[in-house]
Amino acid sequence: MQEASTLSAPASAGAALPVYVNIAAYKFITMDKLDELRPQYQDICERLSLRGTILLTPEGINMFLSGTRENIDEYLQWVRSDARLADLEWKESLSVDQSHRRMLVKIKKEIITMRMPLIKPEEGRAPHVDAQTLKRWLDQGHDDNGKPVVMVDTRNDYEVDVGTFVDTVDYRLTKFTEFPELIEKHKADFDGKTVVTFCTGGIRCEKAAIHMQNIGYDNVYQLEGGILKYFEEVGGAHYTGDCFVFDYRTALNPQLEPTETKQCFACRAVVTPRQQLAPEYVPGTSCPSCAGKQ
């Protein structure tokens, strides 16, 4: 895998050219002295005028940041000076504006909350499948051993509503902590099949696949790099809609361009361009899903 993936969209005639680089990165690695690390990350991000969110946890780091090319490069060089993060990989996209409005560095218990302390990706990952291989499996309708392939979405319901793989299993999760019980309850549904878990960038599906192995799933993979890496490498094949992202852009299409989809500030529901025409849609206040229910 490349250290960085540059995801750019062609500018239309007369359109402003992208000037900000947006990065997404995570690594499961034991981290300590988080109270000492936090001000260091805060200081460099403030000095470089970066915006976004960094999560520091005992099980690793997760970051979504936006800044100029020069400043992002300097930040990544600083991060990788930590021997634990020397091989950190990241994904990139470009935008005209910074994709986040403020800068937050938080200390959390987990990179993504699952409440399954026995799951430790640092000690060994579940098998992963790259985008090109997954597309080939979906094209032919089975994996290389002839087993049917089933896609399992590990994201929350409002993310899935923006877009997902065709015929995916969607448990309508409201939070990731619901996943372990549901996937164990439905284990028999996947007998004789190859299961591929996926999410936006790889964190949730990595934990999900490990948990599934732990409870006896024989053929389970995680989609390497998540949906965004899949878009970068093969586009929107076997995928319907866009991909929800946790910044002001709300959603990216398979060409990794921002779409007109929005998220309601009040209830977090996805608001399509058509729904934005409704009188109930008041940016920052309400949408057709929650108007009159507050």
Rank of each mutant, 00 (worst) to 15 (best):
V169R: 15
G52T: 03
K262R: 15
R102K: 14
M151F: 05
C287I: 03
L252P: 10
C287R: 04
T285C: 08
L17N: 11
I119T: 10
N214L: 13
R155F: 04
Y221K: 03
P18V: 05
D157E: 13
V129T: 05
R51T: 09
K187L: 13
F265A: 14
K207F: 08
D167Q: 15
L76W: 06
K207M: 12
M63D: 00
L85C: 14
F231Y: 10
G146E: 01
D167K: 15
T53S: 07
E260G: 04
Y158S: 04
K33A: 12
R204P: 05
Y230E: 04
K175V: 13
A291K: 11
V19F: 01
I107A: 07
M116F: 01
V271H: 04
Q263L: 10
T272C: 06
K187V: 03
V220F: 05
A83H: 11
V129G: 01
T261Q: 13
D139W: 00
R69W: 12
F246P: 04
K293H: 11
G52C: 09
W90M: 05
L56Y: 08
I119L: 14
D73T: 13
D161S: 14
R51F: 04
G225N: 06
E257G: 07
L85I: 14
D82R: 11
G236T: 07
M151T: 07
G284A: 09
H142W: 01
N22R: 12
K207S: 08
L37E: 14
D97P: 00
I215D: 07
S49F: 12
L252T: 08
I54T: 15
Y281C: 09
Q294P: 00
I183Q: 07
D218L: 14
Q140L: 07
T250C: 13
R80M: 14
F244L: 08
T6F: 15
A4L: 15
Q276G: 10
L228E: 07
S286H: 11
H128D: 00
